[in-house]
Design a binder for these strands. Sequence first.
DNA 1: TCCGGGCGTGTAATCGATTACCTGACCGGC
DNA 2: GCCGGTCAGGTAATCGATTACACGCCCGGA
Lengths: 333, 333
Amino acid sequence: MANIKDVAERAGVSVATVSRVLNGRSPVAGTRERVLAAVAELGYRPNVVARALRTARTRTLGLVISDLRNPFFTELADAVEQEARQLGYSLIIGNAGESPEQQDDHIRTLLDRRIDGLLVSSAGTGSAMLGEAVATGTPLVLLDREVPGVAAPCVRAEGRSALTELAAHLAALGRRRPAVIVAPAGTPVGDERLESFRTALAAHGVPLPPERIGSSPDLRPEGGRQVMRRLLDLAEPPDAVLATDNLMALGALDEVRARGLRVPSDVALVAFDDVAWFAHLDPPLTAVAQPTRELGRAAVHTLLERIEGREAPSVLLPAHLVRRRSCGEPPTD
Amino acid sequence: MANIKDVAERAGVSVATVSRVLNGRSPVAGTRERVLAAVAELGYRPNVVARALRTARTRTLGLVISDLRNPFFTELADAVEQEARQLGYSLIIGNAGESPEQQDDHIRTLLDRRIDGLLVSSAGTGSAMLGEAVATGTPLVLLDREVPGVAAPCVRAEGRSALTELAAHLAALGRRRPAVIVAPAGTPVGDERLESFRTALAAHGVPLPPERIGSSPDLRPEGGRQVMRRLLDLAEPPDAVLATDNLMALGALDEVRARGLRVPSDVALVAFDDVAWFAHLDPPLTAVAQPTRELGRAAVHTLLERIEGREAPSVLLPAHLVRRRSCGEPPTD
DNA sequence: TCCGGGCGTGTAATCGATTACCTGACCGGC
DNA sequence: GCCGGTCAGGTAATCGATTACACGCCCGGA
């Protein structure tokens, strides 16, 4: 592959001039054209590696995602990638698969590659490498999940208003015994969603007793199914269940069906994260939709602010309720 | 961040010695330990960018995936990433979103970054940049989709045996009017699947007339739904439908339900690509499962062969039928 | 005692760009 | 006619590693 020296020789100028032409600096018309002609003839493309070494900027961002196979995170990763590319950055995606060790492994690799900035939707309750990242001075922005003790802005959605709407929706439909399937203990988002929902229900005089709150062992269908099993075995089983993650909701739905029960007539089901598939389930699932694309966009912008040395606050975007048929009402559209 | 010179000074040796210690060459015990101690004290990590410039190897692979939001490709990307990482390579994923322009954009960027090798599951019928990649001498391996005119090995699954099994399965269940929803015209995999299925059906004396073959305008649910609409409007509607992609199958299912018909009693439904969600649909979908993990693994290995300058043949792995309930039989397990 | 070989380590070139600094040409004003 | 300013463009240092080559030391054999 041709390098800058080849171009310089062909155009009869020095490498400095070639570099200046390509970076839009001084040269005059005649020289400029000769250089551009040489570039075109040789099919020259600057070596990004060499440039990165010299300028100490790789124009690459890193994204460590907690679980790429969870469709919510797939969408989020896609949104981040698109925004990054639009702004001239490449993105290296690492999938932690909900394992803190793999997450650390990825962060380590990304730091070694001298990425300009790092986005992390942390698996588990955080990890040692996050501190290391901050220590090296690599700009860091947390995505979707807050990590206690890590000094970095966090970009995520808040469910308060959507859950308020949901509580009203359920109350209007006469559901009086709600239950919640929450993420494994210690996940901050899960706790927040639970509390918001409890508060919203209370406003309608509907209680949320401890026995109708189940913590799933994992963020996968099987975990959701286990909790749903326990809930349906209750002497007074719930008439509406909110799962705080889309995969857990799927497992919960499996359990309902396995018992020959029906959604929504026997029990209403609502999920967090409105993934594309929900519209194709039977019945289509009512869901709290996070603004995925905006989250990705905001995350990249926040990170770029930090890369350019500016302070950047955390971002909280509102989620909203998408009413479908899993609570017993016809869809609004 | 500390560099190799800092380590050398601290250990009282030259940079060459540090490099040799870190790369497992000559130095003797005493020196070696002093260097390692200095490395530990300074928290030194080699600068991958500088190393890549010098050695002309980035230890990075590129993957351009046709549509990251299609769960089949998400799984495939995940499989590729895991295998690459295990072998000491990072992976940069680019999502083409089924657009040849975006695909070219990504390939361009990846070549500029001097990745060691490129994996592409090409969107559309291929693109100009694929030729460019070959021209630069960057090792290239095609994934899932063959591209005519591009001289590169292709790693994919073949459905012949699974479709033979499927034809027998359908025949045994008394389905005599099969139909197929194929990918947009010109997609080689789609054509192959269609022909394999036709041949397999013929062995059971079941015809597949042209009016029961519908080509979808895209690889998304809406396209599948449109074709299904046409099929169900036929004077003699099909009693079994095979969709050659998982998203088209979803749309087809929507149409069946929208008409108040049932799967499998009114029409059987089978999809290509066994994505995790299929098991959670109602009824769980029978599917032709591609060996995703093995495909990813084989793709990375094939690419590494080429990177090391060896010839590598194309790889064809067998898909297999996963029987669930969407054709009318209870699941085998 | 001297010489050769092997081994450990240092010196410096190199990868391909960017960029600070310098040079020389040209022009205008006095 | 001389001097200073402007500007295009060249020279060379630099980023942080790897590695060819050279050097010096030590040891063994003649």
